[in-house]
Design a protein around this nucleic acid. Structure first.
Length: 484
RNA sequence: GCGAGAAUAGUGUAGCGGUCAUCACAGGGGCUUCCCAAGCCCUUAACCCGGGUUCAAAUCCCGGUUCUCGCACCA
């Protein structure tokens, strides 16, 4: 089993995520977050939101269902509904548009019939086997949904458009000031041809997007501040471990705001517990840029042999705001003279992939072969488990009493009295709970407990019960400093 | 979407025409043990779905679904 497979096995067995609708055979590319994964995901979102609120971002929440007009303006309608053809002889599939352009025909067919007749009229052959291509079909990556009105509706492939269309309200909310940072978490939907690798490529997935609106004429308000060290792979093929500020000064990263948000992104990933040594920023080649993007740096995570994109930080320029201004007729310019169309930098986070990166970074095996998720305290579904040493002599009742007191101020807490104590420690290790409190005979006689730390397996003994059951959140307790 | 392989308890698996469907782990209950998945006993729990072949199908055949791996796709 690969590292990835082992993590998936734990996630299914312990309840981080499960394939959806299994009793009816399942459905490709859809996953449920199980109980532990649901808490973990909220913790991930919280860190993300915290870091952006810190720098003055304003949050937003728009619908997943989106009318066609929005995607006509954004360019998604054309770019998402590619016309494709399949060779009847060798079964290979191709984009009609790219076949035509390779023959010097620069036409974009508007529908299936037109695409088919273009193929036939120009006697286009299959690049693989040479057979004539005769038919075309619509290859749509957006989910269209039905409604009782005439208007066509789609499930959004990114949350961004919900922000762009309401730019005017948002900039007014911000009292007309640029820069403006708007953040939105939510579901995105893409009709992936072949969903793969559990929660890595899904048809419905969790995103967290940031739209940074900037004055295109002004000097940037953002400048890399820390000089974080990370591997950069630029689109000229050069790879180097460097600091981000220096990379900007050296011209590897094009703009100071791009560098700044790369640093923010790296900080978020590290705070979540993603392994720095398995991260890199990779710049998109010109030919792989999205239709709205002029430059893009992805934060990628190494999962077994593959590099997986977990965040894309894309320079969208004035593309979206301009398009929506033109299509809607609404004036979206800002500034004292009303003549500024803002440009946009977009850090877009794939939350499911970040979760996979977190789990993979945290996964370890002890010498004994038992598995541990060394999740950061902020991220782990539960921070604490209360365990009676044995199930008799009133230890369970005493442990229950402590549990009931502590859960008043520490909701991420578990109680477990089944099996042996060692088994219970292992169970908590496997779901990443950083601390266990053991209730033993000394607790009964002297009101003291033992705290056990997950990664070191070290214990602090003789901790007065009252220091835990009265007061604030468990993680704020000074006693935990003794594990450092 | 194509090609190849696969699908059996919660998880990982054995069985490859006739089995009370194997085993391990996990789960529940008990005995034992006062600190790291020990041991013993009991227990819950599965042949992806539909059709066909056959006296008899988890097993063979045909569809579908899902998964894995390649190719393609990833705006």
């Amino acid at each position: 089993m690969s590292n990835f497979d082992e993590i998936i096995e734990i996630c299914k067995r312990r309840g981080f995520f499960w394939p959806s609708f299994q009793i009816y055979g399942g459905s490709a590319g859809l996953y449920d977050y199980a109980p532990l994964g649901t808490i973990l995901k909220e913790n991930v979102y919280k860190i993300w939101m915290d870091e952006y609120l810190k720098i003055g971002a304003i949050p937003y929440d728009s619908p997943s269902i989106t009318p066609e007009a929005v995607f006509r303006a954004s360019g998604h309608l054309q770019r998402f509904a590619d016309l494709a053809t399949t060779c009847e002889q060798c079964k290979s599939s191709f984009k009609v548009e790219s076949l035509l352009s390779s023959q010097g025909i620069n036409m974009v067919p508007l529908n299936e019939e037109q695409a088919a007749s273009l193929l036939i009229d120009n006697k286009i052959r299959c690049p693989k086997c040479g057979a004539f291509l005769k038919s075309a079909y619509n290859f749509n990556l957006m989910f269209q949904i039905s409604s009782n009105g005439a208007e066509k509706l789609y499930l959004r492939p990114e949350t961004a458009q919900g922000i762009f269309v309401n730019f005017k309200l948002l900039i007014t909310y911000n009292r007309g000031k640029l820069p403006l940072i708007v953040i939105q978490r939510g579901k995105g939907f893409r009709n992936e041809i072949s969903p793969r690798q559990a929660i890595i490529r899904q048809r419905e997935f969790n995103m967290a997007e940031v739209e940074v609106f900037l004055d295109p004429s002004n000097k940037s308000s953002f400048y890399p501040y820390k000089g974080e060290l990370i591997t950069l792979l630029s689109n000229d093929g050069k790879e180097q471990k460097t600091d981000i500020e220096k990379a900007f000064v050296d011209g590897i990263i094009g703009t100071p705001e791009h560098a700044y948000f790369m640093e923010i992104t790296l900080r978020i990933a590290l705070r979540m517990g993603i392994d720095r040594n398995r991260l890199r920023f990779r710049q998109h080649r010109k030919d792989e840029l999205a239709h709205y993007s002029s430059d893009c740096w992805d934060l990628e995570f190494q999962l077994d042999e593959d590099w997986v994109e977990i965040v894309g930080i894309s320079d969208r320029g004035q593309f979206d705001v301009k398009n929506h201004q033109n299509s809607s007729g609404q004036n979206m310019s800002v500034g004292e003279n009303g003549d500024i169309i803002p440009k946009v930098l977009e850090p877009a986070y794939g939350i499911d992939r970040m979760i996979m990166a977190i789990l993979s970074s945290s996964y370890n095996k002890r010498d004994s072969g038992y598995k541990v998720l060394s999740l950061k305290q902020e991220i782990s579904p539960y921070v604490l488990a209360i365990l009676p040493l044995q199930k008799k002599d009133g230890l369970t009742e005493k442990a229950q009493e402590i549990f009931n007191a502590m859960r008043q101020f520490e909701p991420r807490i578990l109680f477990d009295d089944s099996g042996s104590i060692g088994r219970r420690y292992s169970r908590q290790d496997e779901i990443g709970t950083p601390y266990c409190i053991t209730v033993d005979y000394d607790t009964l006689s002297r009101d003291i407990v033992t705290i056990r730390e997950r990664d070191s397996q070290r214990q602090i003994k003789e901790v007065p019960m009252s220091s835990l059951t009265v007061g604030g959140p468990f993680l704020n307790n000074d006693i935990l400093d003794r594990f450092k």
